[in-house]
Structure formats: C-alpha cells, structure tokens
Design a protein around this nucleic acid. Structure first.
Lengths: 196, 196
DNA sequence: CGCAAAAACTAATAAGTGTTAGTTTTGCAA
DNA sequence: TTGCAAAACTAACACTTATTAGTTTTTGCG
C-alpha cells in the first residue's frame, strides 16, 4: 500500500541502498533479510525488486560508492602541492570526515565487503590495494625527504588506516568527545605520538 | 564414520570451537552453517550436538575466551611496577602477540560479538568497557605525571586500540614484514609519532 | 476522465537453516 | 568375547531465505 518515500534528488533505488546500509551495519549482511529491509521501508519484500536486481547488488552499490570516493580523493591529494606530512594529514582528516558524514556506508564497506561475489570482490580488493599502495608511496617519499622518521612504510600505513577505522567505536559514544577534538587529537597522535 | 580428531590436551569440544573460529572468521558467523563446520571436521552436522549445545554456544566460547584473556592481562600490567608509558607499551605488545598466536579467535571476538544473544552480549560489552576504562585511567595517570602530552585520553585509547586491531590486515600479507619489525615500528609510531 | 506505466500486492517455490529423534556403529574395559 | 557408553549415523521437522510470477492498485499525463 504505502510507497517508498523519496526525498528530492534521490531515486527510490538510492533510498533503498541507504536503508540497506543502515540495516547491514546493524545486523550484518548475511543476517539481514530482504523482509526486514522491506519493513524498514514500509513495503512488502517483493516490491523492492521493482527497483533493484538483487540483495547482493545493494552490497555492491554500497562498497563501490565508498571505494570510489576514497580512490578519487587520494588522487586529488597526490596531485596537490605541499609537503608529505601535510598530505598525510589531509588524508587522515578525509577519513575522519567520511566516517562522520557517510558512517553507515563506510562501516558496511569496511565490514561486509567479503560477502561480495565475483568479480566484484576482486575489483573491490584491487581498489583497496591501489589505495594502500598510493599511501605507502607517499610515506616512502616522506622518508626519502627526511620529513618522516626511518620506519617501515607499510607498518605506518597500516597503523594510520586502522586508527581512523576505529572511529566507528567513537560513533557510539559521541557524547564524550566533540568531533573537532577527536579529529585534532587523533591527527596529532598519529603524526607526533603522545609522549612529552 | 570418521571421528573428530583430538590432539592431546584438547577435548573434542575445544577442537570444534577452534574449527568454528576458523570458519566464522572466513565466512562470518551468520553465513557459516553447521553443515560446513561438520564437513571441515569430517563429520555429519548432527554429530556435533554430541559435544556442543548450539551454534551460538560456539560464539560465546570464542568471545569470552578472548575477552577474559585481555581482562586478566590488563590487571597484571596495572599491578606491575614501571612508568605509565612502559605499561602502555606492554599492553600494545600484548595485543600484537594475541593477534599472532590466537588470530582466528581474536578476529571472531572483534568482528562477530554482535551476534551474541542476551545475556551474553551485555556481559561481553561490559568486559570490553571495563578494559577500555582501565586503559583510559592509565592514560590519564600518564598525563597527570607529565609522561604523556596533554590530549584527550579517550581519543588516545581509541587510536591505540584501533591501530593494533588493524593487524588483521597484516595477517594476509605476512611475507612483506617480519613480526618483530611490525611490533617495534607500530609501538614506536603510536608512542613517538612518525615525524622527524 | 481515461489510459498507460510505475509500483505496489499476494501466492508460491526451491533451497538452506539449526536442531531433534531414533538408530547404528565404534572403541574400550572387564 | 561380551557389554556398555560414547559418538557416529540417517531421516525428518519446522522455519526462514531470496526471488519469481501473476495480479491489482496507484500515479501522473493528455
């Protein structure tokens, strides 16, 4: 009876994808059913198939939307001026910002990508590896230019990427810390450490 | 026909739990079926129920085994001598070590705890909150004693815990970096930053 | 209004789920 | 060798799953 509500500038498919991201985050991809998704949208499950092709298509849409955003952002930063540490700071801040503004989708892309089917799984992992490679190269450049201490570049990238991913835990305790303090302190910690 | 193989000092239940951790890590808890688990053990699914009570009991065993290990370790470190930074370094190294030696179970506890049913879900989250609280108190002490720079303690804890969790990504690329380099560089990065 | 397309519905299917019941096989101790 | 308990098996159940087919309702345009 009820129809799927679309805010302006959003197709019904996009509304379904957004609600799917919320549900997949809450219950995980496998445990979330199309019936639950339909209920959340005020509709019967088969009605969804007027707008989408399959459940796994929803996961694909979420993962690649996020993956492509990160891929295009790192390209922009690579080609911008400034020293390496500034670039890395910009990347960290972009991660934090994405976590703030697209939390559900980023969360799902981070946690549920393994349920992508081929060839999407391979493609997604390729995007991610390419991203990590860019970041690693950046760190290596920083080391060569003596901006960054002698250290294993891969470990540095791993540490940074993992730390910003951890913002998902903050998301549940928002009240304790303001976004600005969070962002500044985390950037500072990752670049300068935390000892006096 | 075939029986579940037990190495010495392991009950059959423990063998099942270990195999479950491997499977849950690979496929996620919801997507993993008891039939798959049985195949991995060379047995039919109903045979498992001679040794265990239910699928969710397996997840409980995994999560609390890991949770209790961390809880008891932080208590030991809290009560040990030494300065705050040394204690935090010991904690980071313990996390890394746990990731190395009990990877499957740590991974599952980190990723699949949300599928615990009550009251286990509440209990597990209580253990985790208590752990984070201990760590936060430690950082606060370090700030008061001027060992640690003025910063938000919660953000510092978040950054550290998230970074060590990220070792799961390293686990797939072991070849590139030795465990010792990984451990030393990550500790150094988290304590001293990475700029010159 | 009337018509066509979009989008909702109901009913159904085939496959897969955790788990139980009841039975047979296995392995060890007497 | 016999007997008993542990642990395997087969068959089945009650549900849930994503998805399709076919039909009815709703919507927007001329």
């Amino acid at each position: 009876m009820a129809k799927i509500k679309t805010s302006k500038n959003d197709t019904k498919k996009e509304v379904i994808i957004q609600q799917a991201a919320l549900l997949f985050k809450f219950k995980s991809y496998s445990a979330a059913s199309m019936r639950e998704l339909a209920v959340a949208l005020g509709v019967e499950a088969p009605s969804l198939y007027n707008h989408i092709g399959s459940k796994s298509e929803l996961l694909q849409a979420i993962c690649f939307k996020v993956g492509n955003k990160f891929a295009s952002q790192i390209e922009t930063i690579e080609n911008s001026g400034g020293c390496v540490v500034d670039k890395i700071e910009a990347i960290i801040r972009f991660h934090i910002q994405m976590m703030m503004e697209n939390f559900d989708e980023v969360y799902v892309a981070n946690h549920e990508w393994k349920h992508l089917q081929e060839p999407f799984l391979t493609d997604f992992l390729a995007i991610r590896r390419s991203y990590e490679k860019s970041l690693t190269t950046l760190v290596e450049t920083g080391i060569n230019q003596n901006e960054i201490r002698q250290t294993n570049p891969y470990v540095a990238v791993l540490t940074i990427l993992s730390a910003v991913r951890g913002l998902e835990f903050w998301h549940r305790n928002k009240k304790n810390v303001s976004p600005q303090v969070l962002e500044d302190d985390m950037v500072n910690h990752l670049i300068n450490g935390f000892v006096n």
